[in-house]
Structure formats: structure tokens, C-alpha cells
Design a protein around this nucleic acid. Structure first.
Length: 688
DNA sequence: TTAGGGTTAG
């Protein structure tokens, strides 16, 4: 940045110096100090002149100064004037000769088309066209609707006009093109060169202004009249779209083009662009195919490998990620630290810590590719796995290898020790961090707040927050407030939590789903149903979409407050209304809550709702049947077995046998009959 | 282009 600024400044000074020099040279010339001043005759005219003191000058004096000024101006611009005259003459000559050429006999178009080999190749069945109805350009102010239909039917005229308009008036170009089609312009009867020029011009111009749909529309028009997709057009369109970041449009245009059986894409860069677009749009299903086709056209570039590594990492395919590194080595393609780190992250996310460690060793051996991010990535993996000792060792190794830990490094260690309940270690890290001059930031402060909140020291957590507020550079963010709100809710300080909500809004932060979920969770203990409903309404009103977590919390709330009807309605109506995925465990959760409160009928009702959406797992049946047996709700257990059998769900034979035994023990013949029927249906052995 | 902090679920 600094260097860019310096060079920009130097450049500016150079420009200024040049301008001064030119001005000086011109003034020298004008004053005759270098060359004698030429004499120019200018007709005399009266100009009223006023001196600075307000005195009117004599007309002869003023005239002289005006003439001198005009003369000096003309003389200073003499080179420019010569150029202007020469170019003017050339332009006039061009117009005259061009018109003469177009009106020559044997050139039926009369529009000055370029004579290339393609222009002489007519498509089969092409009829001789009548001469054009005019050469003149489209008037700038003439609406397209007012253009003579004869002109619109003249392919050459349309191509020329559209091509010109494409340069600066893309909308008008598209409008003219569409008007021409409506007026009867036949794309299939045009010369190959003409239709190519027209389509390429329109497609590239439309993409240039971000109107990919119009570009696709033009390609569809060509297809409609039986013209095959031009591979060069597809290539330029895909490259342009990828460069402009219109990834989905790029894939859409490819999808359309690939429907053409005659089209073969041999341009490697097209596959390269498509792979990039697929990764960007998370269209991971097609990455492997694009890469395969790319390789069929030639050797992949480092960027192509980079995109494949991103794909592998995003889909959790650590094996593929590692194999890509091998492939790069074999192809003698340089593997940079970003690619290495991405593969490392893929291994870490897949909890393949041994593989990740091996990769770090490989990187060290390769030399010059490990950085702070490498160590942080692996350190996070160890922290997540609860291996804080190894994590700390890695931190020391990193330091011993001459790398300076960053805020992120300290963030990982601090959070790791906090999650591990090793407060002393966390404090030690914090002290090292401060001693080494590492600056605090929002994340580090938030991690500290989380540490105090976890230790139940909410007042201390709030103190840190207050300290943060004093520092302008690191204001609390949504996560900071989220943790503070939860900390207050967890100790029953709902009022404080609501104050925090207000404070975050005042700070210009928009509460997100987690913030609302935490507040809803805070309503459970004291059954603050009305407050929860208000919060839920506010959540929807502020366009925050509830999730499975929200519904899970609301189920707990309604169950705690024994609002069973509302709980059932929540899953029956509100869940689909909010388009939340009806996860089986939500039904399982509510069914368990019902059983715990001995609400047998409602439990079976919820279980029925579950079977309407999906097939309950054997594990879920086991949990519910186990509860029924434990709570001596044998009728409910038998009903659940019956519903499970109807839904072709699996029931563990041990659970079924246990239910049957309990019914026998409690002497419930009716229940036994229901159970036996269900067991037969479930193809389970009936021993009792 | 790659690394750190937040919610549910007995």
C-alpha cells in the first residue's frame, strides 16, 4: 500500500513537471525568444475591455491584446490542429471511397460488410437477398419502434447497427435485435459470419453489463432456428462470466450449450472456468466431471488443482485432498501454502489428526510452505479433540521454529483451555499473550467473557464487556452479546439479558437466531410463555428464520409449562409454516416429554406425526418403549409398537420381548394381544 | 483463496 502510494505520488509529480515544461517551451516559442514569431492577419473587431482597476481600455490596445492572445493560443495548439486537419481529411476520404465500394455492382448488400471467407459461404437453401433498403446509421434519438421494418429485415444493416450499439448502448442493441426478429429477420438465412458477429456481439455485451439471461436468450434464439452452438462463443461467454463472478449464470449457459450434441469443448480454459464456477456455487456434484474433462484437454494449472482442493475440503473428502497433493507433485506443479493449508484443514475437519500431523511434517520437509495458519489449523484440530497437551506442544514447536503466534493462535489456546475447564492454563496463556505484546481484539475479549460465563462468574464477564465498550477499536459483536445474554439467562437474570438485547440493538447490531434462541431458553425455567411468544414474534418480524434449535427450545418450554396442545400444534403447524426441516428427533423429543408427564395419548399422537414424516429408527423406538416400560405405561407402549409396525419401522426384538414380559407380569391380556399382533407384523419372534 | 469466539438434543 505504502509503495503504491509512493509510486502514485511520484507519477503525479512527473506529470506536473512535464506539463510545466511544455507550457514553458510553448511560451518561449510564442514570445519569439527561440523562434521568430510568424505574422497572422486577423480582421479588426471591437471588444470592450476592462482593466483590473476598472478602467476601460482603448479599443486599439484591447484589440491588440485579444489578437495576441488568440494568436498565442493557436500557436500553442499548432501540432494538435495539424493532426485534426489530417485526420479530418482521412475520414472524409474513407467515407467517399467506402460509399463508392459499396455501390459497386456485384455487392448486393450495400452495407460494407467485411469480405471474409465465411461471408462467401452461404448456408444450404439460402436465397439471394434483395439489396438493402439503406446504408444510413440508426438515428440516436429514433425509437426502435419507429425503425423502418424493411431495414429490420436487412441482415447486414441490423448486424452493423447492433454491433455498433453493443459498444455503449447494450439495451438498445438488444431491443433492436429483438425488433428485427419480430420484423421477420431470419437468423438461419444470414451469412455464417453475420450471425456469428451478431450473436457474439450481443452475448458478450449482455454479459459485460451483467445481463447473463439476455446472453442465454440469444443463444436460445440460435438453437431455435437450428444453428449449433459456436464453441468460441461458449468459450468467451464462460470466461467472461467467471471473471465477472456470475458463476451460476456461467454454469447455466454451459448446461444449455451442452445440450447440443454437435458441440465438443476442447478448450481447456472452459473446463477450468466451469470447475471454478462449480466450486464457487457449491455445485460439488459436477467438480469431478469438469476436472476429468479438463485433464482430457491438457495439464491442469495450479489454479485448477487449487479449485479441486477447495472442492475436496468443502465436501470433507480428505483422501481426495491428499491425493491431489500427490498428483500435483507428480505433475511437477508447485503446491503453495494455501493449498497445503486447505488440505490440512480438510484432514482436521474429518478428525484425521494423524494424517494432518503427517502432512505438517511433509510441509516442513518441502520447506518454505508452513506458516502461522498451518500451525493454527492443526492446533484447532487438537483443541477440538480435547488434546490440549498436544495443542500446547504444537504451540511451543511453532515458536521454536521461529514463527510468531498470532491473535488466532492465542484465541485457539485460550478457548481450548476454557472448554477443558483449565482456567489456570487459560490465565497463563492470557498473561503470555499480554507479555508478548499481542493486542486484544473482539474475539479474544469474547473468549474471555465466555470463560468467565462458563465458570459462573457472570459479573466478571459483564466487567470485561464494560471494559470492551471503553475501547473504540474493539466493540462487542453479535457473538459477544449472545454469550452475555445466555450467561444471564442461565443464572436466571432474564431482565439483565433483555437489557443486553436492547444494548446490542442500540449498538446497531441485529440480533440473530442464536440470540433469540438463548433468550427463548431463558424463558423456560420460570415459564415465561408470553415473553417467549413476544420474542418469537419479534424474531419472525425481523426476518430471523427459526431453526430446529429454536423448535427444540420451544418444545422444552411448552413441555415445562405443560402446554401440550400448543406443543403439538408447534410441530403440526408452525414447523411446516416456517419451512423448517421436520427432523425426527423433534418428534422424539416431544414424545419423550409427553411420556415423562404421563401424557400417553399425546405421546402416541406425536409418534403418529413422526411416522407420517419418516420411519422411526430402532434407536428411537427403543428409547420410547424403554420409557413406557419404566413408567408402567404399557398401553402407550403397545400403541407405539402397533404404529411402528404399520410404519414398517424396526423394533429391536429385545425391546419387544421386554414389553411383552411387562404386560404378562402386570396381567394385561389386551395389551399382550396388541403387542403380539404388532410383533407378528414386525416379523419378530413371539415367545410369550 | 487457508486459521480463532455463540444456541438445542435428558
Amino acid at each position: 500500500m505504502q509503495r503504491a502510494f509512493v509510486s502514485a505520488h511520484t507519477w503525479l509529480l512527473t506529470c506536473r513537471a512535464t506539463a510545466c515544461h511544455v507550457a514553458l517551451e510553448n511560451s518561449k516559442l510564442a514570445s519569439g525568444s527561440v523562434l521568430p514569431r510568424p505574422v497572422v492577419a486577423i480582421s479588426t473587431f471591437y471588444v470592450p475591455c476592462t482593466s483590473r482597476s476598472g478602467q476601460t481600455l482603448k479599443s486599439s490596445d484591447s484589440m491588440e491584446s485579444v489578437i495576441e492572445l488568440a494568436y498565442e493560443g493557436l500557436y500553442m495548439l499548432r501540432i494538435e490542429l495539424v493532426f485534426l486537419v489530417v485526420f479530418g481529411l482521412l475520414w472524409v476520404a474513407g467515407r467517399v471511397f467506402g460509399t463508392a465500394k459499396r455501390t459497386q455492382p456485384g455487392n448486393p448488400k450495400g452495407s460494407g460488410r467485411k469480405a471474409g471467407p465465411a461471408s462467401t459461404q452461404r448456408r444450404p437453401g439460402l436465397t439471394q437477398r434483395r439489396p438493402g433498403s439503406g446504408d444510413e446509421n440508426l438515428s440516436p434519438n429514433l425509437p426502435i419502434s419507429a425503425v423502418d421494418p424493411k431495414k429490420l429485415q436487412n441482415a447486414s444493416w441490423v448486424v452493423t447497427q447492433v454491433t455498433q450499439l453493443c459498444r455503449s448502448q447494450v439495451q438498445k442493441a438488444l431491443e433492436l435485435y429483438r425488433a428485427a426478429l419480430r420484423a421477420g429477420l431470419n437468423l438461419e438465412e444470414m451469412l455464417a459470419e453475420e450471425s456469428q458477429q451478431l450473436s457474439t456481439g450481443l452475448v458478450t455485451a449482455a454479459i459485460r453489463v451483467g445481463q447473463a439471461e439476455d446472453a442465454l436468450g440469444v443463444m436460445k434464439d440460435l438453437r431455435r432456428v437450428g444453428l449449433s452452438t459456436d464453441p468460441a462463443l461458449l468459450a468467451s461467454a464462460t470466461k467472461q462470466l467467471a471473471r465477472k463472478g456470475l458463476f451460476a449464470d456461467c454454469l447455466a449457459i454451459y448446461d444449455f450449450a451442452s445440450q447440443d450434441p454437435k458441440l465438443t469443448i476442447q478448450d481447456k480454459s472452459v473446463w477450468s472456468c466451469l470447475l471454478f464456477c462449480a466450486v464457487e456455487t457449491k455445485g460439488y456434484g459436477r467438480c469431478a466431471y469438469f476436472f476429468e474433462r479438463l485433464k482430457a484437454c491438457g495439464a491442469p494449472s495450479p489454479k485448477d488443482f487449487g479449485n479441486m482442493v477447495r472442492f475436496a475440503s468443502s465436501t470433507g473428502n480428505w483422501r481426495l485432498a491428499l491425493s491431489l497433493i500427490d498428483e500435483m507433485h507428480k505433475a511437477k506443479v508447485e503446491v503453495d501454502s494455501v493449498v497445503y493449508n486447505t488440505v490440512l484443514a480438510a484432514c482436521v475437519s474429518a478428525e484425521q489428526l494423524d494424517q494432518a500431523r503427517q502432512l505438517l511434517d511433509d510441509m516442513v520437509e518441502a520447506g518454505g510452505v508452513t506458516d502461522v495458519i498451518t500451525y493454527n489449523t492443526l492446533a484447532k484440530g487438537y483443541a477440538k479433540a480435547g488434546c490440549m497437551d498436544t495443542c500446547f506442544e504444537l504451540y511451543n514447536l511453532m515458536r521454536s521454529r521461529g514463527l510468531t503466534p498470532s491473535q488466532v493462535t492465542y484465541g485457539i489456546l485460550l478457548d481450548g483451555f476454557i472448554n477443558d475447564n483449565e482456567v489456570e492454563k487459560a490465565v497463563e496463556i492470557f498473561n503470555t499473550m499480554r507479555a508478548e505484546g499481542c493486542q486484544m481484539n473482539t474475539v479474544l475479549y469474547t473468549t474471555l467473557i465466555k470463560g468467565f460465563a462458563r465458570a459462573g462468574q457472570v459479573d466478571q464477564a459483564v466487567k470485561i464487556y464494560e471494559e470492551m465498550q471503553k475501547e473504540r477499536s474493539m466493540q462487542p459483536d453479535v457473538i459477544t452479546f449472545s454469550i452475555l445474554i445466555k450467561a444471564n439467562c442461565d443464572v436466571g437474570r432474564l431482565e439483565e439479558a433483555l437489557k443486553m438485547l436492547l444494548a446490542m440493538k442500540e449498538a446497531g447490531l441485529k440480533p440473530d437466531e442464536v440470540v433469540f434462541n438463548n433468550l427463548l431458553g431463558g424463558c423456560i425455567n420460570d415459564c415465561k410463555i408470553d415473553l417467549a411468544k413476544d420474542l418469537y414474534k419479534e424474531m419472525l418480524a425481523s426476518s430471523v428464520k427459526p431453526s430446529v434449535a429454536t423448535f427444540s427450545i420451544l418444545i422444552r418450554l411448552y413441555a415445562q409449562c405443560k402446554r401440550w396442545d400448543e406443543a403439538v400444534d408447534l410441530l403440526r403447524q408452525e414447523l411446516p409454516a416456517q419451512r423448517v426441516v421436520p427432523e425426527p428427533r423433534l418428534y422424539g423429543q416431544l414424545a419423550q416429554c409427553c411420556l415423562r408427564d404421563r401424557q400417553g395419548r399425546r405421546a402416541t399422537e406425536v409418534y403418529k406425526m413422526l411416522t407420517d414424516h419418516s420411519t422411526p429408527t430402532a434407536a428411537m423406538n427403543s428409547t420410547l418403549l424403554g420409557m413406557c416400560a419404566k413408567l408402567n405405561m404399557l398401553d402407550t407402549g403397545a400403541e407405539i409398537m402397533h404404529l411402528a409396525a404399520n410404519a414398517a419401522s424396526r423394533v429391536d426384538p429385545r425391546d419387544a420381548a421386554m414389553m411383552l414380559e411387562a404386560a404378562l407380569r402386570k396381567k394385561k391380556p389386551q395389551v399382550m394381544d396388541t403387542l403380539k399382533d404388532a410383533m407378528i407384523k414386525l416379523k419378530l419372534p413371539v415367545h410369550a
